[in-house]
Design a protein around this nucleic acid. Structure first.
Lengths: 138, 138
DNA sequence: ATTCCTGCAAATCATTTGCATTACC
DNA sequence: GGTAATGCAAATGATTTGCAGGAAT
């Protein structure tokens, strides 16, 4: 049950938090903005304010339940952390997001941080391009 | 002379544009936000509005004179493109930005884009961490 | 002269916050 | 019942835009 995840994070189990968690789990492929989550709630006739969505997502981030990404679009998107580490490749036309994982890159990144005398806390790698599949060919 | 760069981009040669270009060139190590540039202008007693700074930086971006980066800080930072390609390593305590360049990573990135059927237009790689040098040890 | 550029103030967008009310344990 | 969470509206911070006046070619 999902409520245990919330308790473990020291968050009271409330309807908004459960609903938002459920929406994120139902959209495994998609990286959702706060607005996206809010619209989804509206379409389910849930009376949850946008401010609450922001608050909950921020709490989830602090609790390592979701990860916040800043792609080029200006608005932050969130995804569940549950699935293992991965990076992103984003279509600049359609917004489609795919994921990848490359041990060679990760190893190099760790080495570079070390060489620069940094204790790495995180990194962000996003490839931007045009998906030949979904954008038709030219 | 810098004015040729502006003309080539189809931009009229004006005082604000020259001043901003000069400031970016004088701060080679630093990645400046619009606000940073604006403050620097003020300290030089230049009567240039913040809106103009934003407009000029956006035009420079479109003309491939500068690159816009969205680090985690919430505000965009800009740097001259002139220097070759490089990626960034950012100290989350001090905001210090260092640069690096790794052909192995770039090669892998190109390959990954290819494998996913993307025509890569760009990518963004930022390492976050704590700089042992500038943050003292603990 | 014409067209493009600038400054200012007001507008917009994403996100955050204050406060009175409500829901959990 | 008491504390923490929510909804709403107003506040904030970064960036953009409308418009009238000014500069560059």
């Amino acid at each position: 049950m999902e409520s245990s995840e919330l308790k473990k994070a020291g968050l009271k189990v409330t309807l908004p938090r459960l609903k938002i968690l459920e929406i994120l789990e139902r959209n495994p492929a998609w990286h959702m903005s706060a607005e996206d989550v809010y619209k989804e709630l509206l379409s389910q006739n849930e009376e949850i304010g946008l401010a609450t969505v922001y608050r909950v997502l921020t709490q989830f981030e602090a609790a390592d339940i979701v990860k916040r990404h800043q792609f080029e679009s200006g608005k932050a998107v969130f995804e569940l952390i549950s699935k293992g580490e991965h990076d992103h490749i984003v279509c600049i036309k359609t917004g489609v997001v795919e994921e990848f994982h490359d041990p060679i890159i990760q190893e190099r990144i760790a080495k570079i941080a070390e060489e620069h005398g940094f204790d790495m806390t995180d990194y962000s790698l996003v490839i931007y391009g045009i998906s030949r599949d979904t954008c038709g060919v030219r």
